[in-house]
Computed example of a mutant assay.
Amino acid sequence: MPELSRRLFVLSAPVFLAGCMSSRQQTASVKPAPRVVPQYFQEMYAAKTDELYPVAAADLTKVEPEFYRQEVDYPTTEMPGTIVVDTQARHLFLVGENGRAMRYGIGVGKAGLEFQGVARVQYKREWPRWTPTQDMMARDPERYGHLSGGMEPGPTNPLGPRALYLFKDGVDTLYRIHGTTEDWSIGRAVSSGCIRLLNADIIDLYSRVPAGTRVVVLQGPESPLV
Rank of each mutant, 00 (worst) to 15 (best):
E182N: 14
W184T: 09
G112E: 13
T61K: 14
V118R: 08
D172I: 04
R90P: 01
P75C: 10
G105R: 01
A211W: 05
A138P: 07
M1W: 07
M137C: 05
N157V: 07
W130E: 05
M137D: 04
L17A: 15
A58Q: 03
L218A: 10
W130S: 01
S29H: 09
T180H: 04
P155T: 06
P221I: 09
P224W: 07
V209M: 06
Y45W: 11
A58L: 03
D135V: 13
P161E: 04
Y53R: 05
T49D: 13
C20F: 14
P14F: 11
S22F: 14
V121D: 01
G112C: 09
T49F: 12
F93T: 00
G220D: 15
R103P: 02
P54G: 02
G112R: 10
Q26N: 13
R90G: 00
S192V: 06
C20L: 15
P224S: 10
D86W: 03
L164Q: 02
A18Y: 12
R196N: 12
R24K: 11
V190R: 08
T49E: 14
M136Y: 02
T27N: 04
R100A: 04
R6P: 04
L166R: 00
M137W: 09
L113W: 11
R129C: 00
Q25Y: 11
F16N: 05
E152V: 12
V95Y: 02
V55K: 03
D86L: 09
V37F: 04
A47K: 14
A56Y: 02
L8H: 13
I106N: 02
P54A: 07
E64M: 14
D59F: 03
P65F: 07
Y206N: 01
D73Y: 12
V15E: 06
L164C: 02
E66L: 12
L166M: 13
D50L: 04
M44P: 01
Q88V: 14
L8K: 12
N98S: 15
L205E: 01
G160H: 03
R35V: 11
P32L: 12
I186P: 01
G19T: 12
K110Q: 15
T213N: 02
G212F: 10
T213V: 04
Y104C: 05
A111D: 14
E71K: 14
G193E: 06
G107R: 00
